[in-house]
Nucleic acid binder design. Sequence first.
DNA 1: ACCTGAACACCGTTCAAGT
DNA 2: ACCTGAACACCGTTCAAGT
Lengths: 188, 188
Amino acid sequence: MSPTTNAESLRADSARVRARMLAAARDRMAAGGLDLSMNAVAKAAGVGVGTVYRHFPTRQALLESLAAQSLETLVATAVAAAREPDVGTGLAALLRAGLRIQLSDPALAEVLAAVDAVCAETLDLSRDLAAAIATLLDRARTEGAIRPDLTADDLRRLLCGLQHAVRIGATDDDADRYLDILLAGLRP
Amino acid sequence: MSPTTNAESLRADSARVRARMLAAARDRMAAGGLDLSMNAVAKAAGVGVGTVYRHFPTRQALLESLAAQSLETLVATAVAAAREPDVGTGLAALLRAGLRIQLSDPALAEVLAAVDAVCAETLDLSRDLAAAIATLLDRARTEGAIRPDLTADDLRRLLCGLQHAVRIGATDDDADRYLDILLAGLRP
DNA sequence: ACCTGAACACCGTTCAAGT
DNA sequence: ACCTGAACACCGTTCAAGT
């Protein structure tokens, strides 16, 4: 056995353990809610607590890792929306996607609302998201489709607020109407 | 000592203890945030944990007791808003007050967002609030000042969402703009 | 009657000890 | 190198024991 092989098998095993922990965390999240417990994740993944902490130094780090995939999808959607020929269509698509993805992934809702990320990957993705939104808003502003004072951070916060309004007990139909209300409110 | 005097002094003492616990809870809330701990409240009030539970059977009950005063104020504001000669002015006043009071009292924000109350008093006040909002919305609908499909529950949820959007890191100026955006979005 | 606080089963987090 | 799990200081909640 060369040391390389050994290291690689270690790495492969580590990756497998990491995946198992994330899966367990996702299960707990889907079942219970936002009360993600490190100890419970460890038990569910058949792993010591220390191993969870080795991969995710804090609860926030675990949350960000859970949300990474959704955040990536949201960034891609925002980039596509910014390229949409019709700005209004792009804006509507972005808001709708931003709401839907937050509702389907509570971890993303929390990460999107957090002031400061703890993982480098999350920071990068957040920057990309902000840039895409800013591009879309610039275009919309130029065409007079939105209030001139709207920033990318404003839109992010309003999107988080919309999510909260829906999660609090709204139906899917309600969610569509709230989306409509926000879109109407953004017009100049 | 007549038994009446004895019972009354017990009741008076109980009320004093209750007030001390609420004050301690309010302090903790103002300082730390939303992480209201029953044990910490007991210690800060110089009282056994059991005494806290005797007065507030659950954390939610304590939260509602904390929010009761703010909720009363909000109800009064809503009633006054419903009587405002100009519906638009009334609606704007209600939203502004609803946002401000939630920001100043995190307990109220949580109670307003909760699906079901646990204290009878909270239930009554919530019903009063819903009734006042419904009255205002009926008038606004008749005058064609708002979307016809808007319910009192919609407005409550949107108000909670607005609070969330602001708490997430917005400035006071941002809050005013978000308020404006919501008001604009509510128009038909 | 009312209050106390030890006790229970949890939580996030750390770290000596094992492989 | 990596993992384990007992240990620490907490949490919400209960309830026998005291006054």
